[in-house]
Structures are given as structure tokens and as C-alpha cells.
Design a protein around this nucleic acid. Sequence first.
RNA 1: GGUCCGGUGGCCGAGUGGUCAGGCACAGGUCUGCAAAACCUGCUACGGCGGUUCAAUUCCGCCCCGGACCUCCA
Length: 504
Amino acid sequence: MTTDLLLHNSLTRAKDRFAPIDPGHVRLYVCGPTVYDLAHLGNARPVVVFDLLARLLRRLFPRVTYVRNITDVEDKITARSLETGEPIAAITARTTADFHRDMAALGALPPDEEPRATDSIAPMIQLIERLIANGHAYAAEGHVLFSVPSFPDYGQLSGRSTEEMLAGARIEVAPYKRDPGDFVLWKPSTPEQPGWDSPWGRGRPGWHIECSAMSWRALGEVFDIHGGGHDLIFPHHENELAQSRCAFGTPRMANIWLHNGMLRVDGEKMSKSLGNFLTVRDILARGAWAGEAFRLLLLRTHYRADLDFTFAGLEEAKAELDDHYAMLARAVEPADGHETVLAEMADWALAPLLDDLNTPLALARLRDLRTIENVASVGGSATAVLHRIGKSWPVVAGLAAAAFREAAGVLGLCRSEPREWLRGRPSAGSATVDGQTLTTTWHLDTASPAAFASEDAEIDRAVDQRLAARKARNFAEADRIRDELKAKGIVLEDGPQGTSWRRA
RNA sequence: GGUCCGGUGGCCGAGUGGUCAGGCACAGGUCUGCAAAACCUGCUACGGCGGUUCAAUUCCGCCCCGGACCUCCA
């Protein structure tokens, strides 16, 4: 597969060819969550999008380091603690664990490193000291501020001039700021607020400095890709970039800046006041299938476009997965001798990802592979699809399915055992990354395996009885059994190899 | 108000200066004891008005509509 990857760079506002600084080692940083509450749907989008990017990069390059931070010091966390009485450390530990569970349920592999802000105070202080020494920051009344006028490129990423920003600013300018645009690197803490000793007294970091410090420690002064939600471009990423470049005197902080689009719910921005605020848990509660279905739903829209979440869309994604898994459940291992065309098929399906992660087109190609496999294993004609896509691939049982499996793996989809999925039990998936096997689980709660086993046995018995009735041409009885199962949500499919069943 | 991004068939959603996206839904058909599944066929869209061009959904301008950001926000 070619490594010619194009990515839309927010910095240049164009699709740039991705050229790693070190072709042997790609370095990626993504802004992670502030851990004070359960992850909402919007939090999940960058996690899934950049999980896909990391998987793709791992396919293209020998080594990838993917860093995603945990913000565990922030005034929202403090406020929550004061409100509920739960200690800050307990809130952040619990919320971090919840976040990990939820993201695993979406099939997102853990990042290679997950630094925490509270473990990175020392490098933050180092950075701030460098900025002061460089003349890019100054201390005032217990605060340390970044001097925006000291950095001529300020505003480059978000595409706005300092005057524009101030014209629209809705906030009062603090008296200790030399310039209204200056932002806080360090601020003093009251006794009830979390704080650390520093050259400027007991205090805590500003919002942006943590990412400059953590990306520096994990990836170096300049790295390849920096990602996050579109809403982070200003001020967060603009300020991060300013801090890092001024601290190190580099022309770039990251070469490529990627930003995912926002998520709406039923056409409106998610907000607690509108009552349309949905957590990932709310989605996962719909069923064992919901985690993977939500992942697919996210990938069905290009990452840079805004996405309007609906439960109807989630159901549609579930139906698509059912069809994929049904195909995989039928598939046999392909005969030897088709390795070249198998690789060609998988690369063809994945090729759209190289064009700025065009997941909708890649998913359409996956469906075409599915059609080819269905023709090979069930019957019908693949002439139309092969003609449309301009290929003359052999229609051999198991071949397109194997290519599908490989390509879907890069998208992080269809990792469950197909028969288990169809019977309502998505199984744990695993992936090998840098020689390490990482496990992802699609579902939050595992129903008792024993209960499933006994119910399955009961269904199998009913299916056998119906088969016997059919053999005796007692179709009334056969149909009665089928209807009875259907009422329980069990769908039967008669095939040449016998009857299979699935949970609808 | 400033900056930016979008408006594609009933719905979702890619893409392109000139024969095709794709999916869902819907309607026919093949297969099947009947179903289901699978496959085939149909459904021929690009917000409005101008402009450039032999040719525009695709490029340019204006307008309308929606959304994001403007120091809490993925």
C-alpha cells in the first residue's frame, strides 16, 4: 500500500501530503478529556477519529507514538468537588476509569501514552520559566501571562488578527494584563483550590500550558500531527502553539493540525438546558451492539463535517453491521493462490483513507466487497458491481470476505466473532500494536454466559423441531415454531447448509 | 458585528468541468414449501440568481439558509 497520505491541515487550510519528520517514527498528539463528568457523544468523536488515524498510520509506518492526555486539574473539576464534596482525586480517578471503559466500548485502542496534567507540573513550570527568560511571558500579581504581542505569528492557526479577536471579545480585561490578548500560563490558587509550589507562589497552571508540556515531554519540541475538536482551534490550540514555538524557538509546533467537526443531536447543539445532552453511556445502554454501531455511525460521516446524531441513524448503523456480520458468518477461508488479489482488494477499500480519511467512501467500498462475497457464497451476479468499480476480480468464496476483514480492521470495525454478534453477543476484540496485544470490548455489561448458553440451547432445540416438521412437510407446525421464535426476537434463515438463527 | 465552514434525490452521505458514488426507505423481479437472507432492476439529485466555458452540481460573483468559533467547550 502506498504511504501517500493527504491530510487537511488547519494551519495551511489545504490538504497537505503527510511527510513524517522521522519516517521511522510518527508522532501524534491529541487533546484528551477534562475528567469531571461522563464522556458525552462529542467527546467520543475525536477519540474514534484519531483511533482510526493511529490504526492507519500503524499500517503505513514502522512505528507510531500516539499520545492523548488526561486533564485532571481544571476549575470545572474543582467546582464539581466543592459542589458534591467528593475529593478532586476521587472525581478524576473515577471519571478517568469511566472514560477508559466507554472508549474501549467504542473499539478505540488506548493511546501509547496518556500523560496526566497533575504529573506534568514540573515541565509546565520549566516551560513557563523559559518563556519568561525569552521575553514571551511575564509575572504579575501572582499570575504569569503569555505576551501575545511578543509573537508575531499569533493568530495564524485560527486565521484571525489580534484586533479581530479583541473586537469580538466578551470578557473583561484583567488589570494585570499588559495587553488585552495576553493569556494565563500560571495563576494563584486559594487554599481550597488545588495548587503547587512554583517560583510565583502556590498556584495552578492555565488551561493551555499542559498540552505544550505534555506533548514536549512525550514527543519532543516539534512533532508530526496535533489533533482535537474544531472548537479547540481558538483559543486552546492557538495558545498552545504560541507557547511551544516561543519556548523552543521553532517554526512549528506540529506540522499538521487536524480538527474534527462538531456533533449535534437532533439538529441542535448538545446542551443540558435543551435536554438533548447525551453521554456515551446513554448510547451503550441501548444494547450490546450500540458501541460498535456508534463507532460506525461516526465513521459514516467525514471527520471534518459536522454530524447530526439521531437514534434512527444509530439503528441504521446497527443494521449495516448486522449485514456485514451475516456475510462474515457465511464466509469460508479462501483457497490458496489468491493472496495478491486479496491484498489488492483490501488496499482498494482502504485507499480512500489516504485522501484525508475519506471513511464514507471506504465504507462504501467495504459494502462492495460484501456484495462480491455474498455472490460467491450465496449466489447471484457480481457483474454489475464489478463493472461499476472497474475490477475483474475472481468471485471466489471467502476471498472478498478476507479482504473485507482486513480492511475493516483498519477502521476498527467487525472485530467480533460474527456468529456471536448475530446472536446478540458482540465479543471482545483484540489488536496487536507494536507487538503488544490490546483488548477492546464492544459492550459495557456482559450478560451471564450461562444464561445465554441455556437460552441458545432452547432455541437450537426449537430449530431442530421445526426442521423435523419441515422434513415431514408439516409446514403449519414449522411456521408456528418460526413465528413463536420471531415473537422472541429470533429470526431464522434457511440455507443449503441448514437453518441459522440470529437475534434481531 | 468579525472570522470560518457548509447547503447533493423521501432520509443519510461521497464525489466530479463532460458516460456510475454508495447506503436506508420504497416499488418490481430471481431464488424459496412459505418466509428470511442474498442477488438483479427501477427511483436519475446537486439552495437561488448571474458570470466564465463548447460544456458547471463541480470554477467565479452576489443573495438566501444552516452551523462553528470570537478567551468554559471534543
